[in-house]
Design a protein around this nucleic acid. Structure first.
Lengths: 211, 211
DNA sequence: GCGGCAATCAACCATATGGTTGATCTGGTA
DNA sequence: TACCAGATCAACCATATGGTTGATTGCCGC
């Protein structure tokens, strides 16, 4: 029993928490030491329960999975974080790995994949869902510093663009000249690698910049 | 036991199926008669297991929840369909209700809400998650025929717009003249109630038209 | 203190965009 | 049959957009 893998579950959906518990409790080498419905609660539980592996969802209220992962890795480096989520967008994956997650699984994973992934994570090994792995590799072709995230001001501008404002309207709304708006947009297009505002909106939504 | 509510679970995520089963099996008045990971399999199971209530996810491979709901309601009108999903976009909700679902819950619903909803559904009563109810009411202000969905061709055009193509490029790609592209766009703007292509892309993505 | 970056503004210009009006053709439905 | 909606095209025009070049300011980190 001292060799059991101690698992903590973090997910805001009761259904999912119950499901994971149900899947793990009939495996002899897992011990569920707690569950939380947000990142903040998770940090408290980690402190007192000392899990080996944390199963972490990404989209949660109060504190999301990215931020929680970052804190876990900095405060308790021996605790491994395994992401288990529905979403597999490029930025979700990249930022999660960047935050220190040891693996990334999707919720449509079959039971055995989940079991194997937890065991691998407890040994510090990485496990990625196949679709996640391919997306990650595709992104690796561009070095990380080319991730090119937008400044706050640029996001302000792009949000107004996505709402149908002309450059003139945007200038008035932000109390800056049209020239500045155009400059911001030129930078936005470069950073997102798109040719115009319509595709910039699409790209930004995909990267989760406009929620 | 003949008064048990017979429940069928349809969801492509093993974790979620396990979770729902775990939640329902300790309630004395529920009997789980089967589970399926897509709509097609669900229809087969319904035929032989005769459930009272089907818990249905929306996004699934092979046959999605909307189409499955439609068929269930036309082939087995006595079977009630209760949507249980992660997504609460306007179109998901409206089309699900339109397809004949008796209720619409989100996966972050607490246990008791789920229990109550299944019992209500078995009596043919409607249960909506609070956030769903408010969205639905907001949409009801506009009559249904004003739903204004885009034609296939218009979606073709808008998709190319979202990828950064100019009208000229779009014309060549679709083998039509620039004038026609502009006509389509004018109609798109009217239907989506937006002033330009950037906001049209945003609106279309929000309505789930560009996935 | 220097270098770099974000934010601000300006002027010029070719091209794209969106509004408007009107027309033809097709397929499906009342 | 008559009608309608969708897809197709044309011409005109004011305005918006995007590219380019260049400049100033303030702040942060080395």
């Amino acid at each position: 029993m001292t060799n059991d893998i101690r698992v903590l579950i973090v997910d805001d959906h009761p259904v999912v928490r119950t499901g994971i518990i149900g899947m793990l409790e009939n495996q002899p080498d897992f011990q569920i030491v707690g569950d939380a419905d947000n990142g903040e609660m998770a940090l408290t539980l980690i402190k007192e329960r000392k899990p080996d592996v944390v199963l972490m969802d990404l989209r949660m209220p109060v504190m999301d999975g990215i931020e929680a992962t970052r804190r876990v890795r900095s405060d308790y480096p021996q605790v491994q974080v395994l992401i288990l989520t529905t979403y597999d967008t490029d930025t979700d994956i990249v930022t999660a790995i960047d935050a220190g997650a040891v693996g990334y699984l999707l919720k449509d994973a079959p039971r055995n994949t989940l079991y194997d992934a937890i065991r691998a994570a407890s040994r510090g090994e990485s496990v990625l869902a196949p679709s996640v792995a391919s997306r990650l590799l595709a992104h690796m072709r561009k070095p990380v510093q080319e991730q090119n995230q937008l400044s706050e001001r640029e996001i302000d501008v792009l949000r107004l663009v996505s709402e149908g404002n002309t450059n003139k309207h945007i200038g008035k709304a932000l109390h800056i000249s049209v020239a500045t708006v155009k400059t911001h947009l030129t930078h936005i297009f470069q950073k997102l690698d798109v040719p115009d505002r319509a595709s910039a909106v699409r790209e930004a939504i995909e990267r989760g910049l406009l929620t």
